[in-house]
Amino acid sequence: MAKANTSIGMNTSMNNAGSGISSRTGSKPVHAVKRKLKYNIERAKKNKVAYSLVLPYYSLFFVFTLLPVAISIIYSFTYFNILEPPRWIGVQNYINLFLNDDVFIIALRNTLIYSLVTGPVSYIASFLFAWLINELGRRIRTALVLIFYTPSIGGNAYLVWKLLFSSDRYGYINSILMRLGIITEPIQWLTNVRYIMPIMIIVSLWMSISTAFLSFVAGLQSIDKSLLEQGSVDGVSNRWQELWFIILPTMRPMLMFGAVMSITGSFTVASISIELTGFPSIDYAGHTIVTHLMDYGSMRFEMGYASAIATTLFVLMVSVNKIVQKLLQKVGN
């Protein structure tokens, strides 16, 4: 706050200086009121400009992000099928969700398994790759950043995995395994319950080196070299100590930001599941909270129930994020 408006701060301090003189002349109360009024009018005027800058963005943000969360929470306590007005049914949706909907439990379990693997693995891999390429030359570092980052901005390029895991003999992975004599007949990768989840995890790890990775690369690049020299003077004797005692604590803000990005990304798998394994997948092996949400929201139009699924996912994501933030506070301490 103090930093935010130094101009007003300066004005008031100058006015205060003036008040010191005027108070000596004995007309303090009148001046004080006048000054306060003037200050507030000035602040309001300034605010008007500030609001004109902030509101075009924030009103859209309110309408398309905050309001929907609120609506979703409210609808989750209703029966709503779009045709009739919503009807209040209390926590019935949640009771059905957790006690009567076996498919949701599968989806929840799949999502948790999936995000417990992809979230941490992609997070750690992002940091590790960033750390490993940090001391390489500029050109090769840039090239590697591009290689690691490209799959995440490739749109539907992940469909290539569908060709690679194609279930006939023309599938590249089947053909390699057959040539190596590991298998004798093609594996039905994308319709075999055993392989669906691992394949989804592999493909999403391939796509997951994204924003967090860029943040780590940039953070490592901007670490003050003198800090490392100082550390070496203070008795840091190997790279691991350097990493734990100097680099990680310095990088903490990036680590927190990267964690938010990785967690949020890992909980929302849907398109990979739908495109690779079908919708619904065999025995719901690739079913996630988001595909369950799509099932009820955009196919069955049970908006109340779908909102309860969305709200559950919302609570799950925000609380995991908050917990991880708490844990990261401890890094390097």
Binding site: M1, A4, N5, I8, R43, K46, N47, V49, A50, Y51, L53, V54, Y58, F61, F64, T65, L66, P68, V69, S72, V260, M261, I263, T264, G265, F267, T268, A270, V290, L293, M294, G297, A310, T311, L313, F314, M317, V318, N321, K322
Partner: peptide
């Protein structure tokens, strides 16, 4: 700039990084 509400506005933006848009679809 200093205006009433700016802190809560920014916190809400940071909070929204913690959930994805599928929640609000």
């Amino acid at each position: 700039l200093d205006f009433p509400g700016r802190k809560i506005m920014f916190s809400s933006v940071v909070l929204s990084l913690m959930f994805s848009t599928v929640v609000t679809a």
